[in-house]
Design a protein around this nucleic acid. Structure first.
Lengths: 339, 339
DNA sequence: TTGAAAGCGCTAACAA
DNA sequence: TTGTTAGCGCTTTCAA
């Protein structure tokens, strides 16, 4: 096969073919550009004949943004994260932006990576998981670059935040288990603290304790299915048998806990122990789990994020915003609620 | 909060502060640039003092590519797809590229979307799910733009392909079920044909039929968990009871089928029916499913994709390549293999 | 509404 | 090794 490479046609080529100036070409491709229908028609025809496309790099160099939005996410292969990124990406694209994806597994490199986004004149940045390094945030602030943080703490000093209402969520979870007749509560959480996960777990513990239900805290090494399963599989038997209502700080952990309880420990759910998760990932609804959970509305979350971004790009200069997304309880088969 | 916006420092600013020329600045930021350690030091110091970063837009305008790689994927919130994208993104970034993510749910828009990538002088494109529109492929070919297709048919005329060895995979699946003692086979596949899914299902049917095991084909409305579950839940009882070994063309479908069999139809797996999936998504290994499956090595796949891309960018002008990725059988609890 | 000209920030070819 | 110069392809004043 021949791999002859043609030069990409430029606005100059189009202008020549259409018999107009390069400015005319530019205007033809600028929404709302002041150009007569006839010239626009000529340009469009010439352009499609040559296979011309506006060079977004050159355009972005000229204007102040390139239409690219940085999307920073770790653990993309996790159910919750992947649906967040999927929704965000769809919405961004629908609004005419192009998401540039930075998946950052090793925190050491992250800084440099994210920094490189600035070189693309991004229109804004979205952080779903990692907290941006302080230096970077400082730079974003310097250049007035819109930043939206999802489920992150608000100590960066710059950037709007969209967070699940973890305080309410944790309390909801506790009240729910109590309403379902659980009296001796447990809470499974990862050893390493994380804004949202620790927040809701703490709220759960506080709320339950206040209501006279002390909480046994169970720790897992990390937030994955396997971590949670191992955590429960190795948990002290006495502690486990003391609990009749277990809140897991994410669905993924709840699923691991469920399998550990049923398979590894022979504990019947919900008969001997009720289990409640958080997030409402797709797998929570699968038949073998049928997990009761507190649902985050990912669609709504994504919509809020993109709206904030657009408002900022439109020049909204008010101080950092905080949007709390509402939560809903989804009662399924791992709790003994009155149906 | 003050939202004063500074101008971004340019190489000019850095040059002035460092007392050198703009080319020196450029060279200082070009790997392998011919520059003395002293000047580089001066430049670096000045740059970090000003918070300078190379403008990739301008750089990309000058050189022939922007370092951006287009990554086209649909159904990103699906386990297999999300891990593919996660690995690809990681590898691309490690190689110094920036993935631009196009998630295309509605095929009508896709063309325009993907086209817009060309405007960013992308260094290459990766298609994980959708087949690129023919016009677009033609343009990629015209400009010599590297394209890699994952699990796509090879009828586009341009682009290297990385595919699971579906033919072998389907045969492996059939042989495996037969080896495990299944005699009356079934195959669950989506109604709508897809390159990989239909390919392996067809291979399964062909192989089994040749060996004297006719196959009952069961159809689901689509490839999701729910589609598969509904498909089995509504399947004809006679047909279902005639089958003792069921191959599902993806793990996601297999999990839906498993839940339907056990929960909706009261059929014991693997006692009454053995079940085998394909892909080895994370959930297949979860305790409640413990699904036997044929594994695609996603890491290896991603590595191959990126390698091909890099070879092409380095000027490899050989004709379209086809890389078959090997498959491994993972025997878990849904088959009655000799342990 | 149109075209000419300047310039976005950078790199690369050339000359010193 | 360094600086000078000429673009990369586009948008955007500014005049006409």
């Amino acid at each position: 096969m021949a791999r002859d490479v043609e030069r990409k046609p430029t606005s100059f080529d189009v202008a020549k073919l259409a018999g107009v100036s390069r400015s005319a070409v530019s205007r033809a491709f600028t929404p709302g550009g002041r150009i007569s229908p006839q010239t626009k028609e000529k340009v469009t025809r010439a352009a499609s004949e040559l296979g011309y496309r506006v060079n977004s790099l050159a355009r972005g160099l000229q204007q102040d943004h390139s239409g690219i939005v940085g999307l920073v996410a770790s653990r993309l292969d996790t159910p919750l994260r992947s649906s967040q990124v999927a929704r965000l990406s769809e919405l961004l694209i629908r609004e005419g932006f192009k998401p540039m994806l930075i998946t950052a597994e090793r925190p050491d490199h992250v800084g440099t990576l994210i920094e490189s986004l600035l070189g693309y004149n991004v229109a804004g940045m979205i952080f779903t998981s990692d907290t941006p390094p302080p230096d970077l945030i400082k730079d974003c602030a310097r250049f007035g670059l819109p930043v939206v943080l999802i489920n992150r703490p608000g100590n960066s000093g710059w950037g709007d935040r969209v967070v699940a209402d973890n305080l309410t969520g944790g309390s909801m979870a506790a009240q729910l288990l109590i309403d379902c007749g659980a009296t001796r509560l447990g809470c499974l959480m990862p050893r390493r603290e994380t804004f949202s996960v620790s927040g809701r777990a703490q709220a759960f513990v506080d709320y339950a304790t206040e209501r006279g239900h002390p909480v046994e805290v169970l720790l897992a090494d990390d937030q994955g299915y396997a971590d949670a399963r191992a955590g429960i599989a190795k948990a002290d038997a006495d502690v486990l048998h003391r609990i009749d209502g277990l809140f897991c700080s994410t669905d993924l952990m709840a699923l691991g806990a469920l399998d550990a309880l049923r398979i590894d420990r022979g504990i019947k759910v919900p008969e001997q122990m009720q289990v409640l998760g958080f997030d409402n990932i797709e797998q929570a609804g699968w038949g073998s789990y049928d997990l009761s959970t507190i649902s985050q509305d990912i669609d709504a979350q994504a919509a809020t994020v993109v709206r904030l971004l657009i408002e900022r790009m439109a020049g909204d200069a008010s101080s950092n915003k905080l949007e709390q997304e509402p939560l809903t309880a989804i009662l399924r088969g791992t709790t003994r609620h009155a149906r």
